[in-house]
Design a protein around this nucleic acid. Structure first.
Lengths: 211, 211
DNA sequence: GAATGATGTTATCATCGTTAACAATGTTAT
DNA sequence: ATAACATTGTTAACGATGATAACATCATTC
């Protein structure tokens, strides 16, 4: 039998299927969103049969969960890189970095926080990865509070406010809901500043702080 | 031919397919999320063939868009019902109503703001419905500003901040990301209050307001 | 060198959104 | 009244998806 007619495939086993599937899926996610990820198409592109993927991923959702985990880890790294020397600047920069991450990777960010596609409590690694990113934000706030830059108040309250603000701003800008959706960093900075300094007119600042 | 053997269906035409489909789809959405909406299952439950639905809805996405429209209209009505006499109270109440709407109808809210399932600019009625709800929030802020309760600043900035805050808080609580996800109204009130009064310690309040 | 477990393959199922071709019904003009 | 037309249903079928079962191949280990 001439060599030319032998099947081209050298090895029956692929050798690196999980890693390559993860990588390719991540690229498809970033370019076309999670809905565009099809296990069949994925397998075909890699040159492997579709059920082979099920040897490495329990199901489609688990694959998506892994992608979201890498997303949270990337976000955490970016947040850890901000300078923490000056409390005010650190708080603002944390917000800037957070929102710009969402704007750089909108599809990845949507997957990370798409409550309906990746329900909480189902993928433990995902939950801990999310906690990890959240922790950086909370630590920054706690530091500012310990230094006395921020009001004494329940840490959970300030954290909830800050996270809600940057998360909401991220979500609204990447979905085009905000009129000034130019993704302008100055919008983010202005919004974060409002949370720090407040929105009241000067003459209203210290009268009627009871809610 | 005895009457008992005649087909039970009285009329060939259904008569109210669009309305009934909309209603049933809305119930399924509210209980099981948008992913659970299948046109085939919908048609079967109504007692009609699947392609019949395409006489009234261009495709599945258009049906979902109609559901989201009703969601925005419901949200707008709730927001319009808050008392606007006192500016501070109005601002806080707007936030409370907004977040509690999301918590009452998490699946509907997720559909309304699920950027990947209902892309912006594709369904005009959806975009205008969204604008309508947003307008109430903006009007409330503009009113507070005109009275002098709120700092003079670009309206778009304050609006972006307020909307980001309540939207982010809604999203995070309904997806269980916030530790104190008890949906406690006091959390919302505290968070909105922070945006109004600011987060700085008293001794920091009026020094270094430059960003 | 046989047994074993990991990792692929093919075959198959159920489901889905969607379209095409056709049938029944309601409406309107002649 | 009836012929033409528009509306709204029907069945049949296509292509794609996630998922499972049964079987094949390969690497490793006793």
């Amino acid at each position: 039998m001439p060599d030319g007619l032998k099947p081209l495939k050298v090895s029956y086993h692929h050798g690196d299927l999980p890693q390559q599937a993860h990588q390719l899926a991540l690229e498809i996610l970033r370019e076309h969103g999670d809905a565009a990820i099809s296990l069949r198409a994925l397998a075909k592109q890699i040159g492997v049969s579709a059920p082979a993927l099920y040897r490495h991923f329990i199901d489609r959702e688990s694959l998506l969960a892994e992608l979201a985990v890498t997303g949270f880890e990337a976000l955490r790294e970016r947040l850890l890189a901000v300078d923490q020397s000056a409390p005010r600047r650190a708080l603002i920069d944390i917000g800037l970095v957070y929102v710009s991450f969402a704007q750089d990777e909108p599809n990845l960010y949507r997957l990370m926080f798409g409550g309906r596609v990746l329900p909480k409590g189902v993928h433990p690694r995902l939950d801990t990865a999310g906690k990890g990113a959240f922790q950086v934000l909370e630590d920054t706030i706690a530091r500012a509070q310990k230094v006395g830059y921020i009001k004494p108040m329940p840490l959970a309250l300030m954290t909830a406010a800050a996270w809600s603000l940057v998360h909401g701003l991220s979500q609204l800008t990447i979905d085009g809901h905000l009129p000034s959706a130019d993704a302008a960093p100055q919008l983010t900075e202005g919004v974060v500043t409002l949370l720090l300094d407040g929105s009241l007119a000067d003459n209203e600042q210290h009268k009627d702080t009871t809610t």
